[in-house]
Amino acid sequence: MLAKEIREKSNEELLKDVDLLKEELFNLRFQQATGQLENSARMKDIKKTIARIKTIMGERTRVAE
């Protein structure tokens, strides 16, 4: 998910996205621990997307203050 796409969403939508991404990351970690993970690069992508969302949400709160 690009920063442009993230900025177009509301905070509520972003919080839902973060929850879904964290759940997916948990499942990928579980697959990695059991040796079933096929695409390890997806974990890195999810972590970066979560960081982007949190950064943009932080920017919004700083602007609002």
Results as ranks from 00 to 15, higher is better:
Gly35Leu: 10
Glu8Thr: 00
Glu59Phe: 08
Leu20Val: 04
Arg60Lys: 14
Lys9Cys: 09
Phe30His: 01
Asp19Lys: 14
Arg60Thr: 00
Asn11Leu: 11
Leu2Trp: 12
Gly35Val: 15
Arg29Ser: 15
Arg42Gly: 03
Met57Gln: 09
Thr55Met: 08
Lys54Thr: 12
Leu37Arg: 11
Glu12Val: 03
Lys22Val: 07
Arg62Asp: 07
Glu8Phe: 03
Ser10Glu: 06
Leu25Cys: 09
Thr61Arg: 10
Glu13Leu: 05
Leu37Val: 13
Gln36Gly: 06
Met57His: 11
Glu8Tyr: 07
Thr34Phe: 12
Arg7Cys: 09
Ala41Thr: 00
Leu15His: 10
Asp19Asn: 15
Arg42Pro: 07
Gln31His: 13
Asn11Phe: 00
Asp17Val: 10
Ala51Trp: 14
Ile50Lys: 02
Ile46Thr: 11
Gln31Ile: 10
Leu2Met: 13
Arg42Asp: 00
Lys16Met: 10
Asn27Pro: 01
Lys16Asn: 06
Lys4Arg: 15
Arg52Asp: 08
Lys47Gln: 13
Ala33Arg: 07
Glu5Arg: 11
Asn39Pro: 03
Ala3Phe: 15
Gly35Arg: 05
Asn27Glu: 07
Leu20Thr: 00
Lys54Arg: 07
Leu15Gly: 02
Leu2Gly: 07
Arg52Asn: 13
Leu2Ala: 10
Thr49Tyr: 02
Leu15Pro: 01
Ile50Asn: 02
Gln36Glu: 11
Met1Pro: 03
Lys22Ser: 11
Glu23Asp: 11
Arg60Asp: 00
Glu38Asn: 04
Leu14Val: 01
Leu15Cys: 14
Lys16Ile: 14
Gly58Ile: 05
Leu20Gln: 03
Thr55Trp: 12
Leu20Trp: 02
Phe30Ala: 02
Lys16Cys: 05
Glu23Leu: 14
Val18Phe: 04
Ala51Gly: 05
Ser40Met: 01
Arg7Phe: 12
Ala33Met: 06
Gly35His: 01
Lys54Pro: 05
Leu21Pro: 00
Ile50Thr: 09
Arg62Glu: 05
Phe26Cys: 02
Glu23Gln: 12
Met43Arg: 01
Gln31Asp: 00
Lys9Pro: 09
Arg29Val: 03
Leu28Ile: 12
Ala3Lys: 15
Phe30Lys: 09
Ala64Gly: 10
Leu2Pro: 01
Glu12Ser: 08
Met43His: 04
Arg7Met: 08
Arg62Leu: 13
Ala64Trp: 11
Met43Tyr: 10
Leu14Ser: 01
Thr34Gly: 04
Ala3Gly: 04
Lys4Gly: 00
Thr34Arg: 06
Asp17Tyr: 03
Asp17Pro: 06
Met1Ala: 04
Arg62Cys: 05
Lys54Gln: 14
Leu2His: 12
Arg52Thr: 08
Arg29Asp: 04
Leu15Gln: 07
Arg29Trp: 09
Lys44Pro: 02
Glu65Thr: 13
Arg29Leu: 12
Phe26Trp: 01
Glu24Cys: 05
Ile53Lys: 02
Met1Tyr: 00
Lys47Ile: 14
Arg29Ala: 03
Leu20Asn: 01
Lys44Val: 08
Phe30Met: 11
Glu38Gly: 05
Ser10Arg: 11
Ala64Ser: 11
